[in-house]
């Protein structure tokens, strides 16, 4: 029972954008998801909202007095639909939409705002449970995802093409390889969960290629009836971006984040979660705008599409 509840929690893990680009707002996400597989014939819908804020500049791991963008923020909505096709295989599709992706400037004593909004990308993922030992409470799952850009044409506002950092869609394709490791310690009533992901990006029509990302998230959870506390420590490494085949020196870097999360589950069907992303350590190649904080609200719903699956969900 406890196990089912835990598996149903949403482990927020963001695939697609994660890291800010060289000069622009802390970008969201491709999705927040339970990275394991779903029970057969079970449909899971996960919607989420994320706000992120960046301000000031950093050079490597210290503050920089460089000035250009005053601050940047974005508000993002995501929807993810997953379905357990077989006992071991889950298919997922997720899509994201930027309500705004904004950079504020003060240039020659005049304030300027650059703002994009619109669809971000759609990601199709297949996840296969390779190993599961119910007695030892251990499982291992791997996944492969393909990300399609919402648009390959850069967004134009009032006759001006927006800069890469405020474009809602990066215009490139992506491939993600994921692994998911779960271990439950019955005696201590603690669950540990590890997610690894490699995200490879392709060049867009502007000959710009975002750096590839390597991400590891380690989750610890403790459940108290309907409420669960989850602590996540996430490591993100992003390689340099390339423009016209030339390396963008102020791009990519390394971040270590602490992400506390509170989840509330009702009837093992609905789950509401709030989480806050706090950078612990950041190292930026060159000079880049600094990610300050981000928070997300997630609403998750699970439904069995067959009698058996329903019984499983309600158990």
């Amino acid at each position: 029972m406890k196990r089912i509840l835990f598996i149903f929690l949403i482990f927020n893990f963001h695939y697609n954008y994660i890291f800010s680009q060289c000069c622009g707002g802390h970008s969201p996400i491709g999705g927040n998801t339970n990275q394991g597989t779903l029970p057969k014939y079970t449909l899971q819908i996960n919607s989420f909202y994320k706000h992120a804020y960046s301000a000031g500049y950093m050079e490597n791991d210290h503050n920089s007095d460089f000035k250009f963008v005053e601050n940047a923020n974005n508000n993002f909505l995501g929807l993810q639909v997953g379905y357990g096709i077989t006992k071991r295989f889950t298919a997922e599709v997720e899509a994201g939409y930027y309500i705004n992706r904004t950079q504020n400037f003060k240039l020659n004593d005049t304030k300027y705002i650059l703002e994009g909004k619109g669809g971000s990308s759609a990601t199709f993922t297949g996840r296969y449970n390779i190993y599961k030992d119910s007695i030892k409470d251990f499982e291992f799952t791997m996944g492969l995802g393909v990300r399609l850009p919402w648009s390959k044409i850069p967004q134009v506002i009032d006759g001006v093409e927006l800069a890469q950092d405020v474009q809602p869609s990066n215009g490139g394709y992506g491939l993600s390889l994921q692994s998911f490791l779960f271990k439950e310690f019955d005696d201590a009533e603690i669950n540990i969960f590890m997610i690894n992901a490699l995200i490879i990006n392709t060049e867009n029509t502007k000959k710009y290629r975002e750096g590839n990302s390597f991400i590891t998230g380690l989750f610890f959870s403790k459940t108290f009836k309907k409420i669960s506390a989850i602590a996540q420590v996430r490591n993100e490494l992003r390689t340099y971006a390339y423009r016209y085949g030339l390396r963008v020196n102020s791009s990519g870097g390394y971040r270590l984040l602490f992400v506390p999360q509170i989840s509330y589950t009702v009837k093992q069907k609905y789950n509401l979660a709030f989480l806050y992303e706090l950078p612990i350590y950041q190292y930026y190649n060159g000079i880049q705008i600094r990610d300050r904080y981000a928070f997300s609200v997630n609403l998750n719903f699970r439904l069995g599409l067959s009698k058996k699956a329903n019984q499983l969900c309600e158990k």
């Binding site: 680009q21 060289c22 000069c23 500049y57 460089f66 250009f68 963008v69 950079q103 400037f105 240039l107 020659n108 300027y112 650059l114 009032d158 006759g159 001006v160 093409e161 800069a163 890469q164 950092d165 502007k206 710009y208 423009r243 963008v248 102020s250 791009s251 060159g286 000079i287 880049q288 705008i289």
Partner: peptide, 18 residues
């Protein structure tokens, strides 16, 4: 690459650290 500010026949062009 870079940022364009304003509209019409006169704009500002700028580029950050990127």
């Amino acid at each position: 690459s870079g940022d364009i500010f304003g509209t019409g026949n006169t704009v500002l062009f700028g580029a950050g650290s990127c």
